[in-house]
Structures are given as C-alpha cells and as structure tokens.
C-alpha cells in the first residue's frame, strides 16, 4: 500500500526534491526560513504554513526570508526567473495579490509574448486560498479566477496530496509563470503520495468519480465536498461524475464536454465569487460548445457575491458546502423540460 502523507508534507516534499534535483530552484517569501535575523533558532518555523520547515538546513541560502514587501520580492522572483533561476515564491495569502499584482500580471505573464518568445519566466507563486478559518475578508478569498483571466499565467488549484506534489513539481519545471493555489483547509488532508518525484501535466482534468446522470465539476476544497455528496447520492440511485480540472489555466475543456455529452446535466461548484468566476466560465463553455448535450439548465454552486464574513455562522453560510451541492444536483436531475 502506498505511503500516506499530508497535503502540506506533499508540498514540502515537492520543494525538497526539486531543490535537490536542480540547483537553480530557489525559495523565497515571508518567514519561509522562519526567523532570519531573530535571536532564536533560524530554521525554527518554516513559514506561517510550516511547509518549508527543514529546507534551510539542507539548502542554506537558496531559501530566503524577505522583508514584507511583496512587490519587491515577487518581482525579484520574476526577474531571477528571466535570468535562469527557477524561483518558488510564497505569497502568504492570495488576498495579498493587490500589493504585487503588477509584477505578476503585467511583468511575468507578458514577457514571453511581449518579447517575441525570447524570454522565459519559470517562476512559481505559491499562495493560500479559501474560506473556513474565520480569517475574515482579507485572508479568505479564492481569487484564482482573476489570475485565470490573464493570458500567459498558468493557474493550479490542487485538491489532494497526490495532486499537490505532482502539480507543484510540474509547476517548478514549467517554463511559464504558475500561480499555485493551496486551500488552507486542505493542508491537513491525508492521501497516498509516491515517494519518487513525478509530474502531473497541466490541462489534464482528473475524473475523480465516474457516473452517468450528472456531471459535477469542482475545484480545490470543493472536490472533496462534491465527491462526498456523489457517494451519498449514489446510494439513492443518482450517479454523479465528479471532475476536478486541477488547473484553471490551461483548462481541460474536452473532459468536461465529453462528460456532459454522457450525462446531459452539469453542476459547477466553485468557492470563488459568482461573477466572472470559474463556475460562470465553465458554464459558458458548456453552453457554447455543448448546448446540444444539455437536458437541463446548468447549475452553479458558488459563494454569494459578498466579501468573506468573519462570523462563523455567516462564513459557513458563505461556503458552497455539501448541502448546496446536493440540492443543485437534485435540481438538475429532477428537471423536466
């Protein structure tokens, strides 16, 4: 039986193995070493996520604490990437994109195209997403649709330890800038992960569960919710196919369309805001390219169009949880044109 490890350890293992394999891989971010210049132990913390703990001891100055100046250090990672390094930079929360977005969407994303194919920017921005931690409006968002909107960026939203390791190694080896979105509720998730290095190609959706009645497309933390709901509904005779796109850019259109062709019904689950989000994007894709397959209107299960609330009662209402997913599946299944 394959070894089981936590999502956060899968990420550390990916960083560790890639740093060991390729000396151009470097890691930087706030507290990623965990105490540069402080009187205590240098490698004590490994960042607010604990993900990078132990790497300083192995790789020394290839992992660097930064001042809290996201524009400078994200930009430095981008610049170093154009000069032959493979930086993995940690943007602690995706909500902080506001203080470094130019370096990502105007600089990193554009170089290859704008410079006529003569520049490569193999930078990875690892960043935390998602609600559920009572972390309130500025530390809880799922802003990956905003990055998905930008040509030239690749955007990854892993949903399991296996995917996290393989997709992160792929991200590090990829020659384009990659935004790697880690849902904070998944860090403690356990799953089978090979000890060897491996890569999962981008733009290859995972069919988490096969089914014939309803296609459910879900991302990140929502994949687990959707799979649980699908398992429960299977006992009652509703067979759901759960698809995890794994990357929002590139996006695996074919797998979604093939599935909807078989099921005729689509529910899209996305923790992001509803307007111009992935749910709307995927729904539009299927409406445009798979209209003839559809036997019921597409259902979108998303957060409401509000900031993320602090109060636990409100935040739980905010998150598109299993009950909402189940209701949407029942609605499309029961639709009688």
């Amino acid at each position: 039986m394959a070894r089981k490890i936590l999502f956060q350890d899968a990420i550390r293992e990916a960083l560790d193995q890639e740093m060991a394999r390729d000396p151009s891989v470097i890691v930087m971010g706030e507290d990623v070493v965990g105490g540069t210049g402080a009187p205590g132990e240098m490698d004590a913390w490994g960042g607010v996520l604990g993900v990078t703990k132990g790497l300083y001891g192995k790789y020394g100055n290839r992992i660097m604490d930064t001042p809290i100046s996201e524009s400078a250090f994200v930009g430095a990672a981008v610049g170093a990437a154009t000069c032959g390094m493979r930086p993995v930079v940690e943007l602690m929360f995706i909500d902080f994109m506001g203080v470094c977005f130019d370096q990502i969407y105007n600089q990193a994303a554009k170089f290859r195209y704008m410079f006529g194919g003569k520049a490569q920017t193999p930078v990875v921005v690892r960043t935390m997403i998602g609600a559920g931690f009572r972390a309130a409006a500025q530390h809880s968002q799922c802003l990956y649709p905003m990055f998905t909107h930008v040509p030239g960026l690749k955007v990854v939203v892993p949903s399991s330890p296996y995917d996290a390791k393989g997709l992160l190694i792929q991200a590090i080896r990829d020659n384009d800038p990659v935004i790697f979105c880690e849902h904070k509720a998944l860090y403690a998730m356990e799953g089978e992960v090979p000890e060897e290095s491996y890569t999962i190609p981008f733009g290859e959706a995972n069919v988490v569960r096969e089914g014939k009645d309803v296609t459910v497309v879900a991302l990140g933390r929502m994949v687990g919710f959707a799979t649980k709901v699908a398992d429960d509904l299977a006992k009652g005779g509703i067979s759901c196919e759960v698809i995890d796109p794994r990357t929002t850019s590139p996006f695996d259109e074919d797998t979604v369309l093939e599935s909807v062709e078989n099921t005729g019904r689509l529910v899209v689950v996305d923790e992001a805001s509803p307007r111009c989000g992935m749910a709307a994007d995927i729904a539009a894709l299927v409406a445009q390219k798979g209209f003839s397959f559809l036997e019921a209107p597409i259902e979108m299960v998303t957060a409401p169009h509000t900031p993320v609330p602090f109060n636990g009662v409100l935040e739980d209402l905010y998150i598109p949880g299993p009950a909402k997913i189940e209701a949407a599946i029942r609605k499309v299944k029961g639709y009688k044109g």
């Binding site: 470097i26 524009s71 400078a72 250090f73 994200v74 930009g75 430095a76 990672a77 981008v78 610049g79 170093a80 990437a81 154009t82 000069c83 032959g84 390094m85 930086p87 130019d102 370096q103 105007n106 600089q107 170089f111 704008m114 410079f115 520049a119």
Partner: peptide
C-alpha cells in the same frame, strides 16, 4: 531585461537578476 511600460516596473526585476 526589457523596457517597461509600467513606471517602477523595473527595480523589482533587477533585484531578481542581481540575486541570480
């Protein structure tokens, strides 16, 4: 490393080149 259409876009990138 490129001319830049964003005023102040270059200094962070240069830090990266220097780091390399």
């Amino acid at each position: 490393m490129g001319a830049n259409g964003i005023v102040g876009g270059g200094p962070p990138l240069v830090c990266g080149a220097a780091l390399a």
